[in-house]
Design a protein around this nucleic acid. Structure first.
Lengths: 374, 374
DNA sequence: TCGTTCGATGTGAACGTTAACATTCCCGTG
DNA sequence: CACGGGAATGTTAACGTTCACATCGAACGA
């Protein structure tokens, strides 16, 4: 089968619509005129009924509805979109959606969009080169989505969003937030990291080590920043942080394990703040292997509150992000842009929503030099 | 002659298109005629170029493409869909997509669909009542998707799929597979469970206990079945299994923890096969708390091979499912239906693809009565 | 040299819906 | 009793493509 007949770059790639490959005829069923005939009215009246227009006599409305039911009639969205210039579809740009966080956000986004009466078209970014990000956006625009929501964990994604035409509604969810060019929803990573760090300091630890996420994720940077600032505020020594390049598994337990081995070898380490729960899980394992007890000798704290984190050995103290709220607020921000899109005045001004993280204390943290208790 | 499943209300829920709420005018940009004028040809020639028709002079083609580029022209999918009766969109019905497995499948589906030139519209099922499943399907059909792929972990979902009109292409991914009414892709859970169980028996364990998944998930049932059959084959005693109702977290570490505590209290238990890795994680924790060493005293094995499983304490032996392949095969099966949809002969015959799971031996399993070694 | 054929292009008519405007009918009012 | 007006409905024309067919050349074989 011919994948792509057409010529130029990515632009007009023949979609599945390309004439050759797939035959398939959806066998339309009935159209508005059929309903109209059956109900003994004009197609326009049918349209009015279906769109909830006020000026239709109740008896007529009923007759039309019955005809609709009898024929199993379904409106043709394409025809509707053609004339109304509205598709009722939101585009979602996904990224790393097999990770727990992004997957949860995606889920919440879809839910909120549906509740708001929108369809959702999803496309996922695999590689982060400029081209594939723009491709994703292009794909969505080809579909005439009315707005785009991106899981904007990487700056490049937010940047691409910023380049959409002025009037195009968009929201960045998660990730950076530094950009004031795009409306965005994110969790306050700096505060979250501060929460974790302060908690450990308050327990009596002289300082807190940090296992960082990939350096090219703003979220990772912000957590590091929050950690560092808190230490400095407290006048504590700031231990060095080993940077990770964006290697695929840079948020993963494997990296946590490697880092954990190094930390385990350093007897001065009594507290570790990890940029997420997976990293913490790896650290936990490394400490365990090295015979360093948690939390008796070393306290460990994570970020995210993944579903399993409460059942690790020991249950992981962590900072919870409300992923569901992230998605809901994202859609809310979008609807807000729709509402104001007529009065262009302050509609263009991007809004930033920042969600507060919450510390979830569990058994992986304790004052330093503690005796075992379980 | 298409039996329509619909029946109930919900039918014509006013989508976001409903006249009132959102104004927003996407400011169309240029249309085909504009391109035609600029290139000095007819709109039909533009259409031909864009669709890769053969009979266009090279010079003309170039001129058209330049005009397209110059105007930033983009085809209107709605207009195209209206006349071709093809939307180039696949509908995906998601379920529990925040779990690692489903999220991975979703990801793979989207990827494969995109490669095949299709757009993807996603809708997620929250509650499993008949109504909301049908609603999901209805939503998708309103969008004129050309096919539906469902994450069919529950029988009710597969059943709903089976009720689509005869000619409607569909695929069930994951889950049951028992139904011969719908083409489906799934992992061979029975074999996978057998692999795990046999592995433990071969290590010398007299029998293997089982922590089951929710009873209303066919996957859970099949794993239990594979486990049971293998024990019976080997003439081993079959320990009782505690059933879990479909409580939300029935696949989760919490349940594993509860079960693990019971198992830990029984000194005769030397090997446990868990229906997934999360359950195993909970079991691991319970055993640890009870002071029963893994794998020295008790061996534990999971299912899925989640990314973290190699970093648990100890690293978890598990059965890997190839989620990516699940998605790819799902799309492949769909495309296959498209190809044959003209010759209705054997096209209707549902095809079943069953993927083999692989045992991943790690450190959570060992012969019974082993001495500690690390 | 002249039809015949095929390649390159143009013309007109769908596709199924909604928007705009026209029409009908009935009511209340002067 | 005619008239203005609004409620209920119908009629026509878009929307932007693609398809089917018509047209116009030029190349080709006899």
């Amino acid at each position: 089968m011919a994948p792509d007949p057409s010529a130029t770059g990515t632009r007009m790639t023949s979609q599945a619509l390309g004439s050759d490959p797939v035959p398939g005829s959806p066998r339309t069923g009935s159209v508005m005129r059929d309903v109209a005939r059956l109900a003994g009215v004009s197609h326009q009246t049918v349209s009015r009924v279906l769109n909830g227009h006020p000026n239709v006599r109740e008896a007529t409305r009923q007759r039309v509805l019955e005809a609709v039911e009898a024929l199993g009639y379904r409106r043709n969205l394409a025809a509707r979109a053609l004339v109304t210039r509205r598709t009722g579809t939101l585009g979602i740009v996904g990224f790393e959606t097999t990770l727990f966080g992004p997957a949860s956000v995606l889920y919440a986004l879809e839910d909120a969009a549906r509740r708001a009466g929108y369809f959702v078209s999803v496309t996922t970014i695999r590689d982060l080169d400029r081209r594939s990000i723009l491709d994703a956006l292009e794909r969505l625009r080809t579909q005439s989505v009315e707005a785009v929501i991106a899981l904007a964990h990487k700056p490049a994604i937010t940047a691409a969003l910023a380049q959409l035409p002025d009037a195009f509604p968009r929201v960045a969810v998660g990730g950076s937030g530094g950009e004031d060019t795009v409306s965005s929803v994110r969790v306050d990573n700096v505060t979250g990291a501060g929460l974790a760090t302060r908690y450990l300091l308050d327990l009596g630890h002289p300082t807190v080590h940090h296992v960082a996420g990939p350096a090219d994720w703003p979220e990772a940077r912000q957590r590091e920043e929050g950690w560092r600032a808190t230490l400095e505020d407290a006048g504590a020594m700031v231990p060095p942080v080993r940077p990770h390049d964006t290697a695929r598994r840079a948020w993963g337990a494997g990296i946590g394990y490697e880092e954990g081995r190094l930390l385990a070898a350093d007897p001065s380490v009594t507290a570790v703040f990890c940029a997420n729960d997976s990293l913490a899980l790896g650290v936990l394992r490394a400490l365990h292997e090295a015979g360093r007890r948690v939390p008796d000798e070393v306290s460990v704290i994570g970020f995210d509150d993944a579903p399993e984190s409460g059942y690790l050995i020991p249950p992981l103290t962590t900072v919870r992000q409300d992923f569901a709220a992230l998605g809901q607020q994202g859609i809310a921000l979008l609807l807000d842009q729709f509402d104001h899109s007529d009065r262009a005045d302050q509609a263009r001004t991007p809004r930033q929503v920042v969600l507060p993280p919450v510390l979830i204390p569990r058994a992986s943290t304790a004052p330093p030099g503690q005796q075992p208790h379980a």
